[in-house]
Design a protein around this nucleic acid. Sequence first.
DNA 1: CGCATTTCCTGGAGGC
DNA 2: TGCCTCCAGGAAATGC
Length: 278
Amino acid sequence: MPELPEVETIVRQLDAELSGKRLGQVRLSRKDIVHGDPRPLSRLLPDRRIEGVHRRAKRVIIDLRPRAQLVFHLGMSGRLTLCALDASVEKHTHLRIAIRNADRELRFRDPRRFGGVWCLTGGPKHKGRKLGEVGPEPLPLTLRQFKAVVARPRQLKALLLDQRVIAGLGNIYCDEALHAAGVHPLTRADSLDEAQARRLLRAIKATLRKAIRSGGSTFADYRRADGRAGSYQKHHRAYHRDGQPCRTCGTTIQRINVAGRSTFICPRCQQEVSKPPS
DNA sequence: CGCATTTCCTGGAGGC
DNA sequence: TGCCTCCAGGAAATGC
């Protein structure tokens, strides 16, 4: 489940490897992973130069010249890897884009197909599912901005997961940050006091930065762009640790359900301080 | 407005 | 071993 740190890891590798290179042949074996018209993909992309690869929210954005953008969302099980041309092609590889003069290609694989690709060429109005608006990036967020964004009568975790509110957090890093901040996920977001808000924002940033340094968390599908696994799962303190002792206080980590998601908490470190919204 | 539920999809886990 | 059911979850849609 690639979230901000996983996508950031992929993007840094792709940017380092691909900037300045030109795209070659495009092979799309599953048209329905493309939102909008899939034809421009193979028609308009070859020969464009890669200006750079960056991230916005959980999206990988490849900037091209002449001006175009290739946007990937990895959903649950999406992988974006740079492979040797002759490497065996894994099942569910939906898109392959050769890199000129490199003996390598970019492959997009996504068994569950919750992910997708957008090809933005600035041409006719984009049809199909649009890229939704997303909220501010968490890493540059100031405490003032964070408090403003969080000042709503909603379950805290549901709010943090909402990409329109803050961009990039998913189930793993929400649980890790809430645990690190010692805040219960069902806390009413607008009831956080100054100290809690500060702790939570710091925990979010610290967790994301550490995860980026570890190349993200690999549970099942996620891989870095070079195919290797991330290692931050070894440092998780809450996520997927139900039944195991809290690394802070030894209390057994519990699994509950919040916002329709499995949620892992330490019932001692994360006390429910205020009534959740109706 | 918020929130629970459903939908999409596949592979892996667990039951028998 | 093999079949079956259940379940994970990002994001959007639906119903209350």
